[in-house]
């Protein structure tokens, strides 16, 4: 921890304001070059507190930077996480106003609905599968609130609630043992043109491993993942930036497809 409580609260306020007003904010590491991971999660905590004050309700968590493609893009090596909200969830094939975002981009991932708490000893991928009610394909509508004209570091993304903007949830769930999620193919299209192709293993070798990583992070700080939480397990593809008029669609093999239209 290198920042004062006042500095953290101020950064939390600025980031939440950026989210609500859709205006860019300066990356905190530009102002506080010594900031560390703890500072970053503290700022994100302030952002979440303000969401809750405004009446948002927690849907669960998102895991970021899980794909080697995304980490390469960001020049970093560890996943991060943020909090996601029910009020930011869109139905499949929904219309989303681009004006509500600062710099929107779209990622494709799998969502896990938990039916049991992930508490106790070290959580394994098998524990995650046992605690999962269903898995469903999702699009995550990432929003990079921070200015891009100065360098951004991974701590900046963490402070920005892991760039969570909104998410689109698919229609048809599958049971956790029905499919090997590591071999789910992703065919990702931007305005009906193939933008990227991937498979589930791009997410930390297996999406279930990503959820186990998250579960252990929260177990260690005494806030285990709980039954009912919805976990976005991280993108298998590098995000594409979005603008009004854009359509994004991902086909997830036997899991079906999810699409979104920016208006």
């Amino acid at each position: 921890m290198t920042m004062t409580m006042e500095e953290i609260q101020e950064q939390g306020r600025l980031h939440y304001q950026s989210i609500q007003a859709a205006v860019p904010v300066t990356p905190p590491s530009h102002l506080y070059p010594k900031m560390d991971e703890e500072d970053a999660y503290a700022i994100a905590g302030e952002v979440v507190r303000r969401y809750l004050e405004d009446g948002y309700t927690v849907a669960g968590k998102k895991i970021g930077l899980t794909s080697s493609a995304m980490r390469r893009l960001g020049g970093i090596y560890e996943p991060d996480y943020g909090v996601i909200f029910n009020e930011c969830c869109y139905a499949n094939e929904g219309e989303v106003p681009a004006a509500g975002f600062v710099q929107p981009a779209v990622e494709a991932e799998l969502g896990f609905r938990l039916k049991a708490d992930l508490t106790g000893r070290e959580i394994t991928p098998e524990d995650v599968l046992r605690a999962t009610e269903y898995v469903v394909p999702c699009l995550e509508l990432v929003d990079v609130r921070q200015r891009l004209d100065v360098p951004r570091k991974v701590f900046d993304s963490i402070a920005d609630n892991a760039s969570f903007g909104a998410f689109v949830v698919g229609d048809t769930p599958v049971r956790p043992y029905a499919i090997d999620f590591g071999l789910v193919g992703y065919v990702y299209e931007h305005n009906n043109r193939q933008a990227e192709v991937s498979c589930g293993a791009a997410v930390l070798d297996h999406p279930v491993k990503a959820v186990a990583w998250l579960a252990n992070r929260f177990r260690e700080i005494g806030q285990p993942l709980r039954a009912g939480e919805f976990i976005l397990s991280g993108s298998a593809i590098a995000m594409e930036t979005a603008a009004a008029g854009d359509n994004f669609r991902c086909r997830y093999g036997r899991l079906g497809e999810v699409s979104v239209n920016f208006v």
Partner: peptide, 16 residues
């Protein structure tokens, strides 16, 4: 279309 394919070299995944 959606058949996933992953490749590993010496135990580490390299292609998705």
């Amino acid at each position: 279309t959606g058949m996933g394919v992953r490749t590993s070299f010496n135990g580490a995944f390299t292609g998705y």
